[in-house]
């Protein structure tokens, strides 16, 4: 009895530093922003309790209504394009690397290197490459198609896609490696049995490999959803906080920052509305992750 008690104390002793950190830098701010979002604010001073008024303003009154739906639309674009392009590409690369093509060890490293780069450095450098007289337009001129040159980050129709493309370049190595590891862990006897039965590569991939790597697909999907909802640094470094040009790159992250903290141009802080947007981001992330975990979890195949 005595021994058990001291064991519990020891466990508590070892867990408490980590718990203290989690509580103070994750849970506390979360509840503080929830708390702040329920008040009206007189500049930097918390004023009266207003219930869900700040949430009503985000969803139903101008200008927040338009800005919020525009931002969430851009987040959806991020999610759609990243899911489709980055993860498909990642799966393809993972598959080809697992086939042990010539130089696959070399490619594996090359593909993964950008993942290690600082997100801010990548954003800054690609920001230079994508300038009107930057590397990309220079390359287009070199290959004889100067008419293809664009203001990649200044054109409303292209800016978001340009930033997403840069982010895919940076991050595609991560899903590639996760999928490679998953494909490598598919039991060889399953694959050999399939080949013995005369199954083609395509059939093997879609009927055996894919169902067996669902757990990895699930992880990548959840990470993509969370990443797409929280995207901020890429936009901050390449387009700035105001969702330039003309809000075409604005996401709920940048909208939250501008609203909650204010800036010289965007105006005085609206801490109540900003906190409400923060809380909405949190619940969106939570809900989307839960739904994808539950729905994809059912697809999992047990051997």
């Amino acid at each position: 009895m005595h021994k058990k008690n001291s064991e519990k104390l020891w466990i508590a002793f070892f867990v408490s530093p980590a718990m203290a950190i989690v509580v103070s830098i994750i849970l506390l701010p979360l509840f503080m922003s929830l708390f702040n979002s329920l008040f009206s604010w007189r500049q930097l001073i918390r004023d009266e309790f207003v219930g869900l008024e700040n949430f009503r303003r985000v969803f139903f009154t101008e200008p927040y209504k338009t800005r919020f739906s525009n931002a969430i639309g851009n987040n959806a674009t991020w999610l759609g394009v990243t899911m489709l392009v980055q993860n498909t590409l990642g799966l393809a690369m993972g598959y080809f690397l697992s086939r042990r093509i010539r130089g696959s060890e070399f490619y594996k490293r090359i593909i993964f290197i950008p993942v290690l780069f600082s997100i801010v450095a990548v954003g800054f450098l690609w920001g230079l490459y994508l300038k009107p007289n930057g590397l990309l337009n220079g390359f287009l001129k070199l290959i004889g198609s100067p008419e293809m040159a664009r203001a990649w980050l200044g054109d409303e129709k292209l800016a978001t896609f340009s930033i997403i493309a840069v982010n895919i370049w940076r991050w595609v190595g991560f899903p590639s490696l996760v999928f490679l590891a998953a494909i490598d862990s598919v039991p060889t006897e399953c694959l050999e049995a399939a080949w013995m039965d005369g199954a083609k590569d395509r059939t093997v991939f879609f009927r055996i490999i894919l169902p067996l790597i669902v757990p990895s697909i699930l992880i990548i999907t959840v990470l993509t959803i969370v990443g797409s909802l929280n995207v901020f640094e890429q936009i901050y470094t390449m387009a700035g906080l105001d969702g330039s040009p003309n809000y075409s790159t604005d996401t709920i992250g940048t909208l939250f920052y501008r609203t909650g903290f204010g800036s010289v141009d965007s105006g005085n802080p609206e801490i109540g509305v900003g906190s409400a947007i923060g809380v909405i981001i949190y619940f969106l992330t939570l809900a989307a992750s839960l739904v994808s975990i539950m729905s994809l979890g059912k697809q999992e195949v047990e051997l």
Binding site: P63, G154, D155, E156, D242, G243, S244, P245, N246, Y247, T259, G262, D265, S266, G267, N268, E270, V273
Partner: peptide
């Protein structure tokens, strides 16, 4: 007009980007 959100500056800056680019 830089006292409340959205400020005149924020409104002008983004709409002017559309205006100069020819979308507004």
């Amino acid at each position: 007009f830089r006292y409340n959100q959205p400020t005149g500056s924020a409104l002008f800056q983004s709409a002017a980007q559309g205006f100069f680019a020819g979308t507004l």
